[in-house]
């Protein structure tokens, strides 16, 4: 029997920026997991309750996937759920969870956060070669299903009462998208995020042919298209985006 030769994993180029990206991804997935777990508590319908737990588990698996790939390549991510932006997102979600506002929770988790996840994972996946990039692309595809899951439910809500749903959406947009807009602004509007290891990773994205403007632009594009599919009036949603912190 031949001895199998164990090949060492190739060294990750630009490991600093890739570690920071993975840190943000893991922290974001754990926030998503916590959100879906909280969401399960807001739902009376047991099918939806079980589905929510399943989604929480899905986010856990994504976090585990990212943690495993860090281990594989010897990268040491920072996982900090208390970092300014992620903690603010979590608080924004909990505000609606405490009110047992299932629709509000769905909008934050499955529209706003997932649009950012799907779009940014896709862009990052295309830019990082090898298995790390492939993992981002695979998780991006899986997160798309969460967006699809929410669209039908939210469409029905919109059809029931377009005016009040649009108003509700605008309020949640102001609560949550403002945080995500600050997080993806060109400069750190609220200081260090608490997740990146050193300086803000936005300054180093060019090492892997990315920049924060296009990452944010593509995420906003997907968000706008998703709102459009839900049936929200684009005259209004474009105004919401234009008024975001820049």
């Amino acid at each position: 029997m031949k001895n199998q030769v164990q090949m060492p994993e190739p060294e990750v180029l630009h490991s600093g920026i890739i570690t920071d990206i993975l840190s943000q991804a893991i922290t974001g997935e754990l926030i998503g997991m916590s959100n879906f777990a909280s969401l399960a508590g807001t739902i009376d319908d047991y099918h939806e309750k079980m589905e929510s737990v399943e989604h929480a588990n899905c986010e856990r698996q994504h976090a585990e996937g990212f943690i495993s790939i860090c281990e594989k390549y010897g990268l040491e991510p920072t996982i900090n759920l208390e970092g300014y932006y992620w903690k603010s997102v979590r608080e924004s979600f909990l505000k609606y969870a405490r009110q047992k506002d299932y629709i509000g929770c769905l909008i934050i988790q499955e529209v706003m956060l997932e649009c950012f996840a799907v779009s940014m994972y896709h862009d990052v996946g295309k830019s990082i070669p090898g298995s790390i990039g492939e993992l981002f692309l695979a998780i991006s595809r899986e997160e798309e299903e969460h967006i699809e899951h929410s669209i039908d439910i939210l469409k029905a809500e919109m059809e029931k009462d377009p005016e009040s749903f649009t108003q509700k959406m605008k309020e949640i947009h102001k609560d949550c998208m403002y945080i995500l807009a600050e997080w993806t602004a060109k400069t750190d509007l609220k200081g260090h995020c608490g997740v990146c290891k050193g300086d803000c990773m936005k300054n180093s994205l060019n090492q892997i042919d990315l920049d924060i403007t296009s990452l944010r632009g593509n995420a906003m594009n997907l968000y706008l298209r998703t709102l459009d599919r839900i049936g929200l009036p684009s005259q209004k949603t474009i105004e919401w985006i234009i008024n975001l912190p820049n």
Binding site: T213, G217, Q235, I238, I242, N243, N246
Partner: peptide, 28 residues
């Protein structure tokens, strides 16, 4: 639009950076 919500003006440079990311949309 930004003025209507009490926000500061965006510079031409900032607008150029974001404009093409908007998907085709009904405006009015």
């Amino acid at each position: 639009i930004r003025k209507s919500e009490g926000n500061s003006n965006l510079s031409l440079e900032s607008i150029r950076e974001i404009y093409h990311y908007f998907p085709p949309s009904k405006l009015f």
